[in-house]
Amino acid sequence: MNSDLQALITTLEMAALTTIILLIIGTPLAWYLAKMTSRFKVIIEAVVALPLVLPPTVLGFYLLIAFSPEYLPGQLWQQATGQQLAFSFSAIVIGSVLYSLPFVVQPLQKAFEQLGDSLLEAGALLGAGPIDRFFSIVLPLTKASFITAASLGFAHTVGEFGVILMIGGNIPGETRVLSIALFDHVEAFDYARAHLLSISLLITSMVLLAAIYWLNLPKKNSSKNLMVNTVREEKSSHE
């Protein structure tokens, strides 16, 4: 059980770190995409959405090559940290960030597009600068989407298998996450432990998803719902 606990801790650490990094880079990326009008927008959107359709092993394969000491990203990492990138905790975090990117960027982009510019213009004319506007207008009005994005990014990272297997291997305490531990148990015909891990992952995912849907449920007289409607009315009456 001890090794499973270790795998759980590694998984949670990886997923938490990935989610934080995704929110930090996903927010400006989603903002940029929401405001972008150039033709390159579709290309960037396609790149962001790629992990949704690409077999994880394909992504993992290219990352494995890139992270190896023979290629530039791996070399640079080694020079900067003195450690090899492939088969490290850092590698699976980077892999997870790329793999879960669409799950964070897409809900945020949609929320920013829906919010539109009208309230931001109003804020600017009241003297609020861009950072101020983000924290005083955008964040409170898209809070639900941020929670959705973070939960989806986290849950998707927890469930990741192919990419981690390719670039992380199976090093206990470093890259051995729950999904890989489960695979090991099945390989070793240890179905009892496999059941335990599976059922706990299943229940956790179920609870997390239910929570997300509950959060996005249109509620009567809910201020959140009203406020989204107001923004929509504003948009439509403006068109």
Binding site: S118, A122, L141, H238
Partner: peptide
């Protein structure tokens, strides 16, 4: 503005 653009939150 024509539509008041009040902050709904």
């Amino acid at each position: 503005f024509q539509n008041s653009r009040l902050f709904p939150h």
